[in-house]
Amino acid sequence: MSEVRFTDQHEWVRIDGDTATIGITKYAAEQLGDVVYVELPEAGRKVGQGGEAAVVESVKAASEVYAPIGGEVTAANPALGEDPAKVNADPEGEGWFFKLKIANAGEVAKLMTKAQYDAFVKGL
């Protein structure tokens, strides 16, 4: 049973057991405009909660993507190298960035629920 949580930095994370899948939200993808390049972490890299994990670039901007939750990277989305437009087309699905093995499940509690995030975005 998976659960999706959000950060105030506009990342989403889907929790499936001890695996987290991470990407940027629909709101973020719209704000960035056409994504042209995504720099992803290599498998095996350890990241802490809130640490820089990836970079997403549009033509005129580069933004850091932070790990919503700490752990060891297990996979990066291979499709984004060939087709970064997937981030715009399906940010919360096929446009996922990377997966990691969760180090501390307790960190999930600090993240926003969908309702909380929607309210947060509305207030921006």
């Binding site: 033509v59 901007a61 580069a62």
Partner: peptide, 12 residues
């Protein structure tokens, strides 16, 4: 590929 450059990336 201007995102490599100073006017966008600044200190990075």
């Amino acid at each position: 590929l201007s995102t490599r450059e100073q006017h966008i990336r600044r200190e990075k």
